[in-house]
Amino acid sequence: MWETLAQAVINGLLIGGIYALVSIGVTLIFGVVKIVNFAQGEFVMIGMYISFFLATQFGIDPLVSLVVSMPVLFLAGVLIQHFLIRRVLGPNDMPQIFLTFALSLLLLNLSLMLFSANYRTVHTSYSDEAWHIGGLYIPVAKLIAFAVAMALSGLLWVFLHTTDLGRAMRAASQNRDVAMLMGINPNRVFAVAFGTALALAGAAGSLLMPFYSAYPFVGQVFVLMAFVAVVMGTLGNVMGALVASLMMGVAESLGIQFVGADSGLIVVFALLLLTLAFRPSGLGARRGR
């Protein structure tokens, strides 16, 4: 019983690390640019396909292709922010929600047309390896993904807290108008925030590739988790998103273990609805906004 429980918690934490990369991206964009990126999951999908093609065409290990997927998606993020998002920033919600939503639909269906709905997998030397520690089973690929995800989250935290640009981003997320009065260039800050968020999504994609199949709809799984985690962890709060993502991973895994294989999502949604009912501003919220 305890072993099953511990195993479920470990499985959840490991996948929760990937959820964290996605939700940190969502919360970063929400915090700085003040929009919700409905297309975040599709960038995970693009990261996966980049790694898949590099692996099948050039034999590059998915973990190595991180150095391709992250910069490519960073650039994509900067361009999307500059040419699309910038044009709809303003007090009106409708264009913002439906622009990123349209982007999500577009990327999803384009990849359906280009790559078909087939599941693509990459088999690496460590895909089937696992450590056995006292009856517990720890798959190496997932452990590496978790470790890299945590390292990237840590790097982002250091970036946000020690560099001028990072401080400028945090300032812009706390109070955009005052930040602009202090001489912070909002367009530059927004572009970097969007690019960073997409780079994290790309990293999540590459890290997933050794143990997860790529298909056009794959992003939907992750973006739903990310939205729930971001709502639970208080909108715009990077630390909150990280902690909530790990919790979501564990909750989903416990749901699968103890309620039924198809019940992971029900548990996650139940958590979301409970959060909304009792702590609508999120678990990490201070009073007021």
Partner: peptide
């Protein structure tokens, strides 16, 4: 597959 929603989006 996907052409309809591509055009919609």
């Amino acid at each position: 597959g996907g052409i309809q929603l591509t055009v919609y989006s």
